Simulated scan of single mutants.
Amino acid sequence: MRKLIIILSSVFIIFMAILFIFYLIKDDHSRWQVALGGVLAGGFPLILLRLKNIPFNIPIIISYYIFLFCSLFLGSISSFYLHYKWWDSTLHFFKAIFIGVVGIALYKQCIPDNVRSDVSAVILFLFVLSLAVLASVLWEIYEFVGDLILTHTMQRGGNTDTMYDLLCGCAGGLLIAIYASVRKQKV
């Protein structure tokens, strides 16, 4: 798993660094900033290598890079957000599911088995749902602040875009929370 993290991080960082240099030379402010963010976000999983036990499995790590590629490169740099209205809401839906799965993985890693057996399905449902919804809210705050400080392209739809994104995030969070709750009840 450590080797996979190093390979994926290295490939993504190099890819985004090349884009950063390319768009910096072209003086394309919005794209070089996104590419620089991609360099930083691509390196984040390298922090996991410092842990004795990595709490995330291979599908979670691969999903992280798929999300980065889809949101940063396809969404922002390749302008999928502008050309495909469904792209933004689909990524919000996926992000909420992803964050819910990460929450479940951390729950399993950090909470001892004997304590987990006493946690009700309702509490697990609320934990996963609230984590996914919190991620959606924080992302919308990021978009709002980003539009105030850096660019004016993140919330082109204004309040309608924000609410639609939050609804998609809630739907994704609800879906994974139901899944976690049903699995908990079966155990």
Rank of each mutant, 00 (worst) to 15 (best):
K52V: 08
N53G: 00
I54C: 00
I54E: 00
P55H: 03
F56V: 06
F56I: 03
N57Y: 01
N57S: 12
I58A: 05
Y64W: 03
Y65D: 06
Y65N: 04
I66L: 12
F67K: 05
F67Y: 15
L68D: 13
F69L: 13
C70Q: 12
L72Y: 10
F73R: 06
F73D: 10
L74V: 14
G75E: 13
S76R: 13
S78F: 14
L82G: 13
Y84K: 11
W86T: 12
D88E: 13
L91D: 00
H92A: 09
K95G: 12
K95R: 06
A96L: 06
A96H: 06
I97D: 00
G100M: 08
V101R: 08
V101I: 14
G103N: 10
Y107G: 02
Y107T: 10
C110G: 06
C110I: 11
P112T: 12
D113I: 12
D113W: 02
N114Q: 13
N114L: 13
V115M: 11
R116V: 02
S117Q: 06
D118Q: 09
S120K: 03
S120A: 05
L124P: 01
L124A: 07
F125A: 04
F127G: 01
F127R: 00
L129I: 14
L129H: 11
S130R: 02
A132M: 02
A132T: 09
A132Q: 04
A132G: 12
V133M: 04
L134M: 11
L134V: 08
A135R: 03
V137G: 07
L138Q: 02
L138S: 09
L138C: 11
L138K: 07
W139H: 08
I141V: 15
I141T: 12
E143K: 01
F144I: 07
V145L: 11
H152S: 14
T153G: 11
M154C: 01
M154D: 01
R156K: 14
G157S: 10
G157N: 08
G157D: 11
N159S: 10
T160L: 10
D161S: 09
T162L: 02
T162P: 04
Y164F: 11
D165W: 06
D165G: 05
L166G: 09
L167N: 09
L167V: 14
C168L: 12
C168Q: 11
C168P: 01
G169V: 08
C170L: 15
C170A: 15
G172N: 10
G172K: 09
G173Y: 04
G173V: 02
L174R: 03
L175Y: 11
I176F: 07
Y179M: 06
Y179C: 06
A180I: 06
S181H: 09
S181Y: 13
R183K: 14
R183D: 15
K184M: 08
K184Q: 15
Q185W: 10
